[in-house]
């Protein structure tokens, strides 16, 4: 029995003595709240757009637009595809198929990692939160990867292949493709995911500050027993 609790303590870090919880409640609640908030923000972000592109051209007075969510692309996708076939670009539905199909599950998993980190009171918690910290960057890298893959691999036999050079639209800000001026912007979902990263960073900081003394204490105790 004692052996089991020792293993548990080793894996998940020390449990907090009851009297400390009562005396120093804020110290333990703060990281929990921050990390829980990060998980919720991340989850909520899946309902919001991550990336948006406005496309202006003379014959589109209302412009064309495209909005990327973690699991879908909305907007004038058919029209963009229709235009893209002239320059030999593949249909947008072929981009990031795996990512779109997995995204919600993956973000769920990230949320679970955060929840797990709340209950783990040793430095392993830090390890579990790394994927969440990096998630916005991973999203942007993936987006860039597909944009360059599509933009650089144009079909040479397309009708207008001679008037357009392979291109990579910018991840953010203004770009120019044939008669189109494009404006890419980062949207609320992406900002939320970045916010979740900040919350996680803060959470893990306070998490460490809350549990490190206990951890050190336990370690010292162990050393004493060892002597």
């Amino acid at each position: 029995m004692q052996r089991f609790s020792q293993i548990k303590e080793k894996a998940f870090g020390p449990r907090i003595p009851r009297e400390i919880v009562f005396r120093d409640r804020f110290r333990f609640i703060l990281p929990t709240v921050l990390m829980l908030a990060a998980a919720i923000v991340l989850f909520v972000s899946t309902f919001f757009p991550y990336w948006h592109m406005d496309m202006d051209a003379p014959q589109y007075p209302r412009g064309l637009e495209m909005t990327i969510f973690v699991n879908r692309v909305e907007g004038d996708v058919q029209e963009v595809d229709t235009l893209n076939h002239y320059i030999g670009m593949r249909p947008l539905s072929e981009a990031g198929e795996l990512e779109r199909s997995m995204s919600v599950i993956a973000i769920g998993a990230l949320g679970m990692l955060i929840i797990a980190a709340i209950f783990i009171h040793n430095p392993c918690a830090l390890l579990l939160t790394w994927p969440v910290l990096l998630y916005p960057a991973i999203f942007l890298f993936d987006l860039w990867y597909w944009m360059q893959d599509f933009g650089l691999n144009l079909d040479d036999s397309a009708p207008l292949s001679n008037i357009i050079e392979p291109f990579v639209p910018p991840l953010i800000g203004e770009g120019k493709i044939a008669q189109f001026t494009t404006y890419a912007s980062w949207e609320s979902g992406l900002w939320m995911s970045m916010g979740a990263s900040v919350l996680i960073a803060l959470g893990i900081f306070f998490h460490r500050r809350a549990y490190k003394p206990l951890l050190d204490e336990a370690r010292a105790e162990n050393n004493q027993h060892g002597h």
Partner: peptide, 9 residues
């Protein structure tokens, strides 16, 4: 969208 994200958070 930045404002929206911040507000939501």
């Amino acid at each position: 969208s930045l404002y929206v994200a911040m507000s939501v958070m």
